[in-house]
Amino acid sequence: MAVMLMRVLALTLVFALAGCGDDRPEKIAKFQQLAQARVDTLGQMLDNGEVRNANLLKQYADILASTKPDVAPLLQELSKDASSQGPMYASLKRRLQELGNESNFVDLDQQLDEAENLYQAADPSLYNDMLSDPVNVVADMSGGALARVNAISREADILANGGEDFGAGSQLVGNPAYGSWQTGSNGMSFWAWYGMYSMFSNLVRGPIYYDRWSSRRNYSYYNDVGRYRYTSPKQARTQNQTFERTKKQFNRQGKQFDSPYAKSRSGSTSLSRQSASTPKASTTGRATGGSKFRSNYSKNSNFRNSSSRTTRSVRRGK
């Protein structure tokens, strides 16, 4: 009887241990499949004109190009984000490819976090909020003729945050989809635009240096809300390296240097509930582990256009 009881207990223990196996690879595979489907759906929605801020971006770019033909090539490049051909969407596709290679991650926890982040980043409501940055870039380039979306005015932004006006395109500075921090011969890091976005350099007085931008920047969706979802682990490491390098330079001079993300800037308005529940930008790159599946997707969510939104004028004051 005792022998039989021992066998039963042994079998129970074996099954219990089997049930306690590492389920992270299975979760990663699940999120990868879901993220792929959601990214594909998002691309179709962008190309079909079903994302509100994407439509607004295209409208704004067309309006401004007709009055400022000298910046038409730059506006055309910015308007690519209104489709599946833009750098933000391309970044999601690239991260999906990288997700399938575990060597891109320090451990399974980081890979699982990235899998969930990708799934959330492709949420049309969240992506619609993300597009407020390029929309507001074009709005600011209009000199106030076109209204900002999901953000307070340029003047109120500077006043609220005690920041500096870094000129056209400032909402995109720090976003790895549009440029990167490069180190000059003087050892200081400055923002270098990718491709056609380098035209922004012609619209401002001089280079945007990392140290000054870090302490004087104003609000942008990416830097203050979306960075956690829209930054890959590799990109987060690069950002942290720039911070650590600058911090060491300041320390050698007996000065303190804080991360540009240590303090969130105020300025957002009317963001989706998905954005409201996004982890803070300052936590980007930290592997949390134990990710839980949370679906925020709804076909009836407010990212789709309503007739009242698409027919109203996009010009300020009308």
Rank of each mutant, 00 (worst) to 15 (best):
G195T: 06
D23I: 03
F31N: 05
Q182F: 04
A145W: 00
P25F: 06
R216A: 10
M130G: 03
A192N: 11
T311S: 14
S272E: 04
Y221M: 00
V135W: 03
V135S: 02
Q33F: 14
R205L: 12
R273F: 08
R212A: 11
P233K: 01
N202Y: 08
R304N: 11
P69A: 12
G169V: 09
Q97C: 06
P25Q: 03
Q33K: 14
S132H: 03
Q241K: 08
L112F: 12
Q249P: 14
L96S: 03
P69T: 11
Y230I: 00
K247E: 02
R312G: 01
P233D: 02
G206W: 05
S201Q: 13
L46R: 05
D47F: 11
L17T: 10
K93V: 14
R38H: 02
Y60G: 01
R312E: 00
N161L: 02
Q44L: 06
N175H: 07
S232F: 03
R252H: 10
Q110K: 15
A90D: 03
I152A: 00
N296P: 13
E102M: 15
M88E: 02
F31E: 03
Q239P: 15
R237A: 04
Y178Q: 01
F257N: 05
L96T: 06
G179D: 05
R7V: 12
I152G: 00
Y230C: 01
Q256I: 14
L159N: 02
L271W: 11
S153Y: 04
T67K: 08
I28D: 01
M1G: 15
V135L: 02
L108W: 07
M196N: 13
S142N: 01
G162M: 05
T283G: 08
N305V: 04
K68I: 13
G86F: 15
K30W: 12
Y197N: 15
Q182P: 02
I28C: 02
A151M: 09
R229G: 00
R7T: 13
G19S: 09
E50K: 04
M130I: 07
E26P: 14
G267F: 01
A16R: 13
D165C: 04
T41M: 11
R252Y: 11
D258F: 09
T284E: 04
Q32K: 02
Q256P: 11
N186Q: 09
G100Q: 07
D140L: 00
A151G: 05
F190A: 15
E114K: 11
Q97D: 03
R154P: 10
V137N: 00
D47G: 10
L108T: 03
Q274C: 13
Y230K: 01
L126C: 12
A147W: 00
S232K: 02
T41G: 11
N55I: 00
N300K: 15
G317M: 03
E114R: 13
L131K: 10
R252T: 10
V3R: 12
A65K: 06
S84A: 10
S291W: 13
F15P: 15
I28G: 02
F250E: 10
R286E: 14
Q120F: 11
R312M: 04
S142M: 01
L92N: 02
M141I: 10
G206K: 09
T288C: 10
V135M: 03
S298I: 04
S259N: 07
M188A: 11
S198L: 14
K247R: 09
P124T: 05
M188E: 09
S66M: 13
Q120N: 10
S264Q: 09
S232L: 02
V225H: 04
P87L: 07
P25A: 09
R312D: 00
A281P: 04
V135C: 04
V39E: 01
S66Y: 13
